[in-house]
Design a protein around this nucleic acid. Structure first.
Lengths: 242, 242
DNA sequence: CAAAATTTGTCCGTATGTATC
DNA sequence: AGATACATACGGACAAATTTT
């Protein structure tokens, strides 16, 4: 009578997490890198001895972390290991606490400030004319936009990424980009009055001028001044209060 | 001719991602916070008009980001929004590139250093006797362990988290913890020789002493000296070389 | 351009493990 | 211990997307 023909599956560890680890190990064992194709779902099923549902759920977990990337009707590939998961997680956290308090966002902006200040010494050391030209061009466009009463979001993002680019630290760049994205989504157009836009443009100019002159204290101060108005806005919500 | 009797399911967006967004919106709309229970899978199926598979795969994605948390046989709950996803993602990235180069880990340690240095001003400003006692106790245990030739991993983790604790910036603390965890997994016991252990303990003491005296340049230097040997190890692999 | 093949996406039905009462 | 409610796992069938023939 249908004894234990099927092994009772040692349920000390969950199948799904098992499969998740096995797929990660498969990538590591075979030395795959971003973009390399993975076996198809059915192949993974037979190779790992798991059902398609389990394999698919494992893949979902891994794709949320950008460890794998799925293209419908095409295949599954090793992901780009971006920080999308961080962006999504922090964005949700921000949206969740938003309304009653913007503490989360305030923390995030503080981290951005501190990261940039901490990078100051390295930034100044690596600062050269080429980089200055590129940043100067960005700042000019900011100033022009401010005069026209327009915003300059993209220029702002480029500025902060370009400021860090020369140190070739992928992680710093990605973190900065991630934080910027979260901030842009959770608090879109935080500063939009014309006066504030002009101030912000000026703050960016102060940053690159201090870097150009190799003046670390001035750089730290300039970064602080750049983030100060944002932090002020976040700590005392502008809208409705008695 | 078989007009749009059944809506042809606007397959511009995939069902799974739809469901993922709907679950996130459900949490936001109902103002749920960490620990609050979510509807059961079957309830979600009927409410969202999706199959169990789609709902389950969406939940897998969300649980990977710690936006929801699943307890087997009990239910699904709003997650703690930790940075586990970041840890897992970075850990995998480190393991993936490990062997040929430890560039990833080197970047990570640099970020840790820079974050702590950038925090210096705020740390010093908030530094008080109470905190110093706690940190002093940790450093003492480090020094004792170093004398006995033992390592002091847990003390190290506590030290760096406690150093940042007073600023009540959840994100900084979580990021630091996450980075520490990644480093511990990818490069376990990076420094284990007795001399290095003593050096490291001394570096920690230098950090708290400079903070105690409110000496920012000394603090920055102490942090740099703390991370310098680690970065050296990472940039020139110790093992096999002519 | 059209059909076929491949691969992932979705759905259903059912059985099993797990936690709570 | 038994009952209930829940998540986990499996297998099969069909839909949708992409590439190839």
């Amino acid at each position: 009578m249908t004894e234990n023909l099927l092994k009772p599956t040692p349920k000390n560890t969950l199948r799904g997490h098992e499969v998740t680890e096995q797929i990660k190990n498969f990538i590591l064992r075979n030395g795959l890198t971003s973009g390399d194709p993975l076996p198809t779902e059915s192949e993974l099923c037979s190779e790992l001895g798991a059902s398609r549902s389990s394999v698919r759920e494992a893949i979902k977990r891994l794709s949320a972390l950008d460890i794998v990337e799925v293209r419908h009707g095409h295949g599954t590939y090793v992901g780009r290991l971006s920080l999308n998961a961080l962006v999504e997680s922090l964005t949700f956290r921000g949206r969740l606490s938003s309304g009653d308090d913007l503490a989360t966002l305030s923390e995030l902006v503080t981290v951005r400030k501190v990261l940039e200040q901490g990078m100051g010494e390295a930034i100044i050391q690596a600062y050269d004319d080429e980089q200055h030209s590129a940043l100067e061009a960005l700042v000019l466009r900011m100033e022009e936009a401010a005069e026209r009463g327009e915003s300059f979001i993209e220029e702002d993002r480029s500025f902060h990424l370009m400021l860090l680019a020369p140190m070739n630290n992928h992680l710093v760049t990605q973190l900065t980009g991630a934080f910027w994205d979260v901030q842009a989504v959770v608090a879109p157009l935080l500063l939009t009055t014309e006066a504030e836009a002009r101030e912000t443009a000026a703050a960016h100019r102060a940053i690159i001028e201090s870097a150009r002159h190799g003046d670390l204290p001035a750089f730290v101060a300039a970064v602080a001044e750049h983030y100060a108005p944002i932090l002020n806005h976040l700590q005392e919500p502008e809208g409705n209060r008695g």
